[in-house]
Amino acid sequence: MLGAVIKRSISSIVTLMVGVVVFLSIPSQIVIIDSEGLSSVDARTVPYLITSLIIIISLIMIISESVKIRKEQTDTLEDKSSEQTNYVRVFLAFLAITLWIIALPYIGFNIATILLVASVMVIIGNCRWWQIALLSLILSVPINYLLANVLRVYLPSGSIFG
């Protein structure tokens, strides 16, 4: 029963936890200055109000989900997901972008983007090697050139290349 509630309310539990953490962090994150008696609400009021509502609505969602499960009288409920999702691919794509952000200042836009495009195409699959090579090149050097010469946006050229 508890397992089913947690499984079906995982998103509400996350929003509840975020709400509580932000609520508790308000005193340290928002400093009150003396002249704020102006309107009976200060800089903390709205964040307190928002986080309190997030906590209350999340709790209501968790409680209503557990009541629903109790009504259904089963604790072995499965998600009725009609669509299969490959989370490994999503995680790998996230990782590739993170590495691109980390590597960009060091190896520059051109090389980092060639590596990112190639890895994302490999992650997605169904791409031929020449497609990977061609698209990686098209999305790196020409885009860098266009941004620099047309929009005057200068992307990092890489500290290891001076």
């Binding site: 929003t15 975020v18 932000v22 962090s25 994150q29 928002i30 400093v31 009150i32 200055i33 002249s35 704020e36 102006l38 309107s39 200060d42 800089a43 709205v46 964040p47 928002i50 986080t51 509502l53 997030i54 609505i57 999340s58 209501i60 969602m61 209503s64």
Partner: peptide
């Protein structure tokens, strides 16, 4: 409920930065 949670998180994100009336920083 999910719509309200979504809107509340939007308001919370909007509150990051300098307070519009008193100018004190929030969640910076």
């Amino acid at each position: 409920s999910k719509g309200f949670i979504s809107a509340l998180f939007g308001l919370l994100i909007a509150s990051v930065g300098v307070d519009p009336i008193m100018g004190v920083p929030r969640f910076s």
